[in-house]
Write a protein that binds this DNA or RNA. Structure first.
Lengths: 165, 165
DNA sequence: AGCAAATCGATAATCATTACTATTTTAGTA
DNA sequence: TACTAAAATAGTAATGATTATCGATTTGCT
């Protein structure tokens, strides 16, 4: 009786599945808009939250003040370039044992964890001329103003990317 | 010629050093205000950013939409209770080798990483009556509305907590 | 087709954080 | 000790991502 189909939700999911970068709500909005000019930004936010809550996508909260989304829900880790702001999937082994380490001396119950790596991507590392974006001068100094893709977006609530459950 | 002394900054730093929890700007504001009723919220934000940029404190961006601050700049890890929202220091060994793992198959340069653990703290684990806060139902679903201490605060830019540099 | 629930589009409201500006402090220096 | 330029402050307005609201549509059933 709950959750009916929605063409808008399908379009959002489809768009996200076609991308390997990790677009923001705003970017998703401007792109989906090209196929459906009537779609509302609020609809994009609502459905992204819905999809994240259902576990169909992941919400990435990298600390740049804008939520990013990932249709790849398989276990993997993310790297954020502090120069160009791009978010890249890392090819690395699973590190879920972190959770055991953390729980060893802890009296509560640890259900999961979040990890992000920061640095300079291949392009920005080789290109010495590339200036560091002011608000990113030290890793994780990711500015709100950064627009890795095309536009900007911002922040929500649920189902943030989270490993090890 | 830059950076002059400021009584306000001293008070903020002093307050933060006296706390083991990880207060938000708003909480710091309301507390420091008791000793200096004239201090401005903007001053608190400005100085927190200054202190973080100087490396005297750490900014914690846990994904709850509000920045938290920590006067303990020594390497350590954090746990977030998804029921009560409290942030607790974890007693666990250093895991900086994560960075090597992540960098092994990566062509850029990794300078640091961020890790947070989620779950239920000792109190909330034993207290089965305790209901999950709606927006925290899955780990890292930390709501903006949560006020671990007294008041609320929000978000900034630089010198976020970041390990492994 | 007919109806109730779910969703939408449009827009207003939130709210943490930042920006702006006139005034006050700070820290040298004469 | 007074003088001054730079830095910091208080107060307040602006920003911007996200959420809430609400009348109009769409969806899924019968």
């Amino acid at each position: 009786m709950a959750l009916k189909h929605s063409k808008q939700r399908d379009m959002i999911k489809a768009f996200l599945m076609g991308r390997k970068d990790h677009p923001t709500a705003e970017v998703i909005y401007t792109n989906v808009r090209e196929k459906n000019p009537n779609i509302s930004l609020g609809t994009v936010y609502r459905n992204l939250t819905l999809l994240a809550d259902m576990g169909e996508i992941k919400r990435l909260r990298l600390g740049d003040g804008v939520d990013h989304f990932d249709a790849d829900t398989s276990p993997h880790y993310h790297f954020v370039c502090t120069k160009c702001g791009s978010i890249i999937d890392l090819e690395m082994q699973n590190i879920d044992k972190l959770q055991e380490l953390a729980g060893a001396d802890f009296n509560g119950k640890i259900n999961g964890y979040v990890v992000y790596f920061y640095g300079t991507c291949e392009n920005c590392t080789s290109d010495s001329e590339q200036e560091e974006i002011p608000c990113m001068q030290s890793p994780h100094k990711i500015a709100q103003s950064i627009t890795p893709l095309q536009a900007t977006g911002h922040q929500a609530c649920n189902a943030v990317e989270q490993r090890g459950i």
